[in-house]
Design a protein around this nucleic acid. Structure first.
Lengths: 218, 218
DNA sequence: ATCGACAATACTGTTCACAATCACGAGGCG
DNA sequence: CGCCTCGTGATTGTGAACAGTATTGTCGAT
């Protein structure tokens, strides 16, 4: 009810297919086929491809068509670095602006996350993680940074879905989130930015670890 | 000869018209008129409008057409904050990767900037400023962050062109750039990031100053 | 004179057909 | 046997016409 009108566009649908992995990296995106898949005219499909190219989810070569973008681990690291810089900014702003009710809500989400970790409920934890970020987005009220962050999260989605499966990772992630929330509740922008950076730095470390373990190239 | 093929697209031309101010904020962008201005078909024009909307230079309302985006001072500040976070990252990476020849080039550019300030040559200084950023972009080798920065610079172009005209501003800017270059030459990522942040923080301060001086709204 | 219905206008959004381009493979030629 | 040339098919890129929608101007009633 709070949302007045979410008329999912063709672009939204196509993006969803990509970030959820139903259209895998390297897959060809033929305009005519997408018209059926998305139930839209070729014009709308073309427009969607142009948009998603700007978002970094799709590559297009002249006269050769579009494919789902293949993002290397090196690029995933860059994406997360950029996210780190921007989310630190968001956290700092949130720390400056959070009022009493905001703080209560953040602590409530955190407590639920803690519960989800104890019971090993990954799906629930991931969902709460989204809630937390959503709260930060709202509180920070930093449209520009938040828009860029949303884009970057989509881009790296293919690499980050594995994070939750790492043994011991949820516990580590939880303590980091706790540090972030505490800094914001304390109204300390510097600490909030630092805690957020620390969180994403640890994500980057995991990615780097994989870079060493897995085959370097395809 | 060094550039193999720069076939300026319709999008590039339209973006140029906007960032240079030849198409002012709020101006209506009628597709049919743009076909003549850009020498392209309506399809290409539509595509360009979609792209520039994603870049934040244009707003489009359903069935009501597109206009040049009006970016408020508050938004310009947000844009510069995001730039600050990302350019700090770029500077840090540059500090880590710069080799001997990179350092020489940076110092050469800096020396020329100093000369341009002494002779009061604003145009030359602005040009060298671009050169410096271009060097950082190359040295840092951080595709993701640099792409976002380029976008943000375009967005705030309408507000930043006035900066150079402020009395005493070039001198202040020069010492800040010197600090950045010195940190990179010293190979100190933390210092480089800090110096870059300080530079853009001072830009933000100027914007905030204007926010108080000028009429809040149009 | 003010307001509402209603027609005229000016666009955008969509569809269709066709031209342009590229990948692939067959066939000729050294 | 390798390489170049030339069809052929698939797919993108483009132009023109048409439909849909918001805005503006007009006219009559009150």
């Amino acid at each position: 009810m709070t949302e007045p009108d979410p008329p999912l566009t063709a672009t939204d649908r196509l993006r969803h297919e990509i970030v959820t992995g139903r259209l895998g990296p390297g897959e060809r995106l033929v305009e005519m086929q997408l018209t059926e898949l998305l139930g839209a005219g070729r014009g709308a499909v073309r427009s969607a491809l142009v948009e998603l190219e700007k978002e970094g989810l799709v590559t297009r070569e002249a006269n050769r068509g579009a494919t789902v973008r293949r993002v290397s681990l090196a690029e995933a690291i860059q994406i997360t670095e950029a996210r780190s810089a921007l989310e630190a900014l968001v956290a700092a702003h949130a720390a400056e602006r959070a009022d009493a009710s905001d703080r209560r809500r953040l602590q409530a989400v955190l407590k639920e996350m803690s519960r989800a970790v104890r019971s090993g409920d990954h799906a629930r934890y991931s969902e709460l993680n989204s809630s937390l970020h959503s709260e930060l987005r709202r509180i920070s009220d930093h449209t520009v940074a938040n828009e860029l962050v949303a884009n970057l999260r989509h881009r790296a989605a293919g690499h980050e879905y594995r994070l939750a499966l790492m043994p011991g990772r949820p516990e580590e992630s939880l303590t980091q989130h706790r540090a972030i929330v505490e800094a914001i509740v304390a109204g300390d922008p510097e600490a909030a930015a630092g805690a957020m950076r620390a969180h994403l730095t640890s994500v980057i470390d995991v990615l780097r670890h994989w870079a060493r373990v897995e085959q370097p190239a395809v």
